[in-house]
Amino acid sequence: MSATSSSVGSIPVKRGLAEMLKGGVIMDVVTPEQAKIAEDAGACAVMALERVPADIRRDGGVARMSDPEMIEGIQAAVSIPVMAKARIGHFVEAQILQSLGVDFIDESEVLTPADEAHHIDKFKFVVPFVCGATNLGEALRRISEGACMIRSKGEAGTGNVVEAVRHLRSILGDIRRIGTADSAELFDWAKKLQAPLTLIQEIAETGKLPVPLFCAGGLATPADAALAMQLGAEAVFVGSGIFKSDHPAPRAKAIVEATTHFDNPDILAKVSRGLGAPMTGIGMDEINQRYAERGW
């Protein structure tokens, strides 16, 4: 027994932080002031970025990692975990974020991908990673690269929950189906999902994803958050939905309460009242770039 050896950055330590974020709301913030509002409202973590997805969508151009100065400003403003986004495959942005001491890196399709074939080798990092997924195969490929949390992608910056629901249902539906498959069928599942057999077998045994499954992309109301939780998400990310609404602070607080009390309609009715207008939102046929299609 190695009584005194301790290790940082191990899988249990990295997945452990994802466990701590369960049942909570992770909010996109672009300034230290917004970060304070998010923390005051009860966010369990903030995602520091330069533009929320709705603005990235509007402005176009290449979206990159945020300026370190801006991330440090947010780290100094709050005591809760701070996450930040790196472009898909951009391992140098990830190295920089780790050097800044961010608590979680989101290898995110909301930013413009830096590599069209390879995601980041996330095992090389001490800091944990979250990655998006539209289906179970994608989720398991990310986990096999070292992701310690999966978020269903949804469609960021739309204020429209339909894609988040589609992706969550796809991931959780296949997990349920694998749970009833016999051992021979698991080989076929691995082939079909283009995912490691060992992870498929693990799901068959445990009935759940090997890492926490959160929901993101298009959530704008307390009811949206509760919908994701009732479908089986373990926590939610809210991006543009809070600071693109009329009254961010009360909306943020209401979404936190709806995530905790997701199965209590009386409380959901109470917290949904008088929040002002949510972000306007857009239909899926009105957008020309689907971020969810980035990554593979």
């Binding site: 301790s6 940082v8 191990s10 249990p12 330590v13 932080l17 608590d103």
Partner: peptide, 26 residues
């Protein structure tokens, strides 16, 4: 410290006859 300082290690707990593996997260 922050998450990058989070760690796991063995500790001795009063009354346990072998070490307990402890995970420290932030």
């Amino acid at each position: 410290g922050r998450q990058v300082d989070s760690f796991e290690t063995d500790i001795d707990v009063d009354g346990f006859d072998s070490a307990f593996h402890a995970v420290f997260i932030r």
